[in-house]
Design a protein around this nucleic acid. Structure first.
Length: 793
DNA sequence: AATAGTCCTATA
DNA sequence: ATAGGACTATTG
């Protein structure tokens, strides 16, 4: 009998939706389900995941597992079950869903080397490359090219391979590189008296005395001592130096004082209800609906405390990295070093070290963005999703999973608690709470005796009638002025980065568009035009490329232009800009938010990343300049997103006792998203919006599935889409559903690829998915299927 | 996704 | 005759 493992290959493609069998050689007989291995696949060596073990008599034609990656299984049962659920729910292969659990998507890279084969005739007549390989051992292509730049190396190697003079060898390289550091340690059993023995060696004596108190110190903190001092002491037996593995952590120096806040009755009630469920050790989902500034984080902290007492682990998710730093601070105030941070801006090595920390139980709390929902944990107790309504929880590339649903399944399979928190819950979640599928917990009042801010709506049509063309209304100007005079801070939200949002010819109306995408290019500060979809750049043309006129003008205001304008109007104020252009570096978010928190700046200006979840003591004013661009999108979620953005942004004002003031500039002052947000009335907004959803059959009354079709050629795409739509209508005859489209996607062309959509609404999405799979539409290369899409465009 | 094999065309 | 490019089949 031979041990055989069924393995899914770590590959980001949907067409390989099956496992492959490999022989488990005796040296790896301990292999089991959930392990990561390296296997030969086709003409390469790749990472694979063991999903089944079998013992079979005949294994002809099977290849062997060539390497095992870890010292234990990466996937436990709960992770395996979740991966399987993702594959079936979001219609992807198990390989695709399992690789989500791997930091950096793959854990090994395999490098190709060429090795000389020993030849009988001693290789005298062989070329210099063969001789070089013979002398230096296996080398890779780049290395050979460097030494022999004049050769056509691919050709030479091909010839040598076919002549049987060299062979290919593969070296597996782990991407989880361990970091080692030197530590100086005191020798515990040294009985020499340093004061006598080192009387005439002041530097050595100083170091020994330091070591006698500290016992162990990193070598790099002792740079004042030369290595001869260290060596001498080592030789005399006072100290020794060890090379020890260290686990990287960019956040380890974040230390805060322990803070314990008192709780109000609604917070206590929420904690009590969740605690009761924790004690039952059963899965359940709670929706914590608490107005902005109502102390949701305090509830999270108390629940995590309960979980940690039971020695279980917790995942806390925030919608983007910008919000992590605040959550980290609050948690560090309570849990000190029991925390690791996990997000995609960290290096892969650091992420692996964080997982190692969780693995060896050194820490029990993970704070992170979307991808942190996949951290491997053995004793998952709770997943908390803060700002659960945020669209950034939906993955925008294959597989198109929603973090909330993944968390739901992980907590379900591990009998853990899922806690969703928001001041503006998604309609789906609030609806589920109404149907008792989730348990609703409410925090109706702000803490710190603060009132919700007063919201003032400025009708920009009146400004225009007054002849004002500036992006800042008179009222907003006055609010900024007053806030600055009071030495308070203001946040300004403008949801467009760059300088001018489009460039237009005044003679013919031609708008400069990207060569590869069907969108206007945005003028950036440095004098270039940039496409916000593909990042390609152009210089600003001197004349219109269409009519050769020289009347080229910039229109629309982005964050860069507004920054200029604010400096012009308030020359004494300091303005801090936060958008994707200023936050590319590793700790840029933390730095910007920290500077603002320390009141080095009075005005924080930025895209929607300034609106979410931040808690600044001295912010009393908030301005929202671009709500119309959100509300006017022809999508079923536009109003919901507008309401959320307004409520969340307003919620930054006056959280610590001061009265907050919010200004909303709009051309649609009567829009229900704006009027309800002005009154901070989520419930009324919910009911009004639910009416629309019901009439138009949108979620949460129906499920949605979006089919996106691609092609390089527009005409072919249109034909293909029509054929597909007809096919879908036939296919779905037996299922109650609505098929809408094909219609052009929101952006018709991105990176030279045209897109069209077909939308399916149904309450029986399971059947629809089954039919799509039976007809192998999920395997088609020119189609992607987005289950539960965030928009219909 | 990545590779190796297949087919086809431009070209000296 | 052939090198290089586009395209395709295949992965245990």
């Amino acid at each position: 009998m031979n041990k055989v493992a069924k393995i899914f290959i770590n590959m980001p493609i949907k067409t390989i939706a099956k496992g492959y069998s490999y022989i488990v050689p005796d040296q790896f007989s301990y292999l089991d389900i959930g392990w990561r291995v390296c296997v030969p696949f086709g003409h390469q060596y790749l990472e694979g995941f063991v999903v089944e073990i079998a013992f079979v008599e005949n294994c002809d034609g099977l290849k062997e597992v060539v390497a095992v990656i870890d010292k234990s299984a990466w996937f436990n049962q709960e992770m395996m079950d979740t991966a399987k659920w993702i594959a079936s729910y979001y219609l992807c292969s198990l390989g695709e869903s399992m690789r989500l659990f791997i930091p950096g998507k793959k854990s090994i890279s395999v490098d190709l080397f060429y090795e000389a084969i020993a030849l009988e005739e001693n290789g005298i007549n062989c070329c210099c490359i063969y001789k070089y390989l013979q002398a230096n051992g296996p080398l890779n292509l780049n290395c050979l090219k460097k030494y022999f730049p004049t050769y056509d190396m691919e050709k030479v190697l091909e010839r040598l391979l076919s002549e049987g003079k060299i062979k290919k060898v593969y070296k597996i390289r782990s991407r989880a590189k361990e970091k080692f550091e030197k530590f100086v340690m005191i020798n515990e059993f040294c009985d020499k008296d340093p004061n006598i023995y080192l009387k005439n060696k002041p530097a050595q004596l100083r170091l020994v005395n330091l070591m006698l108190t500290k016992r162990k110190l990193p070598r790099k903190t002792l740079m004042e001592f030369s290595s001869s001092v260290i060596h001498a002491l080592e030789k005399d037996g006072f100290i020794h130096v060890v090379n020890e593995r260290v686990l990287r952590d960019s956040y380890k120096d974040y230390h805060f004082q322990m803070v314990k806040k008192s709780l109000n009755p609604s917070q206590e009630n929420a904690i009590e209800q969740v605690t009761a469920k924790i004690c039952e050790k059963k899965h359940d989902t709670f929706l914590l609906y608490g107005v902005t500034g109502s102390g949701k984080t305090e509830v999270y902290i108390n629940i995590v405390e309960k979980i940690r007492k039971l020695d279980k682990q917790a995942i806390i998710l925030v919608p983007e990295i910008a919000l992590a730093s605040q959550m980290i601070q609050r948690f560090k105030e309570n849990f000190s070093n029991d925390i690791v941070v996990m997000h995609s801006k960290l290096s892969i090595e650091e992420r692996n070290d964080a997982i190692e920390r969780l693995h060896n139980k050194e820490v029990g709390i993970v704070i992170g963005a979307r991808s942190a929902v996949f951290v491997p944990l053995d004793d998952l107790g709770v997943i908390i999703i803060d700002e659960e309504h945020e669209v950034s929880y939906k993955q925008e590339e294959r597989p198109y999973y929603h973090t909330r649903e993944v968390a739901k399944m992980r907590t379900f399979y591990s009998n853990a608690i899922l806690l969703l928190g928001s001041a503006t819950p998604s309609l789906e979640s609030y609806y589920k709470a109404q149907c008792s599928e989730y348990k609703l917990l409410s925090l109706p009042k702000r803490v710190n005796n603060s009132n919700l801010p007063s919201v003032h709506i400025v009708d920009m049509r009146n400004e225009l009638a007054k002849g004002k063309r500036s992006i800042l209304s008179d009222d907003l100007y006055a609010l900024i002025k007053k806030t600055l005079e009071n030495k308070e801070q203001i946040i300004i939200l403008l949801n467009r980065r760059g300088h001018s949002t489009f460039v237009l010819c005044r003679e013919c109306g031609h708008i400069i568009k990207c060569n590869h995408c069907d969108v206007p290019m945005v003028y950036h500060f440095s004098g270039i035009l940039r496409c916000h979809y593909c990042d390609s750049v152009k210089t600003v043309p001197q004349e219109c490329p269409h009519c050769y006129s020289r009347y080229i003008k910039y229109f629309g205001t982005g964050t860069q232009k507004l920054e200029e304008e604010l400096y012009r109007l308030f020359p004494n104020a300091s303005v801090l800009r936060m958008d994707r252009d200023t936050t590319t570096k590793k700790m840029a978010y933390e730095k910007i938010l920290d500077d603002f928190r320390k009141e080095k700046y009075q005005i924080l200006l930025g895209t929607q990343m300034v609106a979410k979840g931040h808690d600044f003591k001295n912010v009393t004013a908030v301005a929202i300049l671009s709500i119309d661009s959100t509300i006017n999108i022809p999508d079923f979620r536009a109003a919901e997103r507008g309401f959320q953005l307004l409520t969340q942004a307003s919620g930054r004002a006056g959280r610590h006792g001061n009265q907050g003031n919010v200004i909303v500039q709009t051309y649609n002052p009567c829009h229900y998203a704006i009027t309800h947000a002005k009154e901070h009335d989520f419930i009324s907004f919910y009911h009004e919006e639910m009416n629309f959803r019901k009439i138009l059959n949108y979620p949460p009354y129906n499920q949605l599935l979006k089919i996106i079709i691609f092609d390089m050629v527009e005409e072919i795409l249109i034909k293909k889409a029509e054929i597909l739509a007809r096919k879908l209508h036939l296919m779905m005859k037996s299922v109650k559903c609505n098929i809408i489209g094909p219609f052009s996607a929101n952006v018709v062309k991105v990176k030279d690829i045209y897109k069209m959509n077909i939308l399916i609404k149904s309450r029986e999405m399971g059947k629809i998915k089954q039919l799509l799979c039976e007809n192998e539409l999920d395997k088609r290369k020119d189609i992607t299927i987005d289950v539960d899409p965030m928009n219909s465009l």
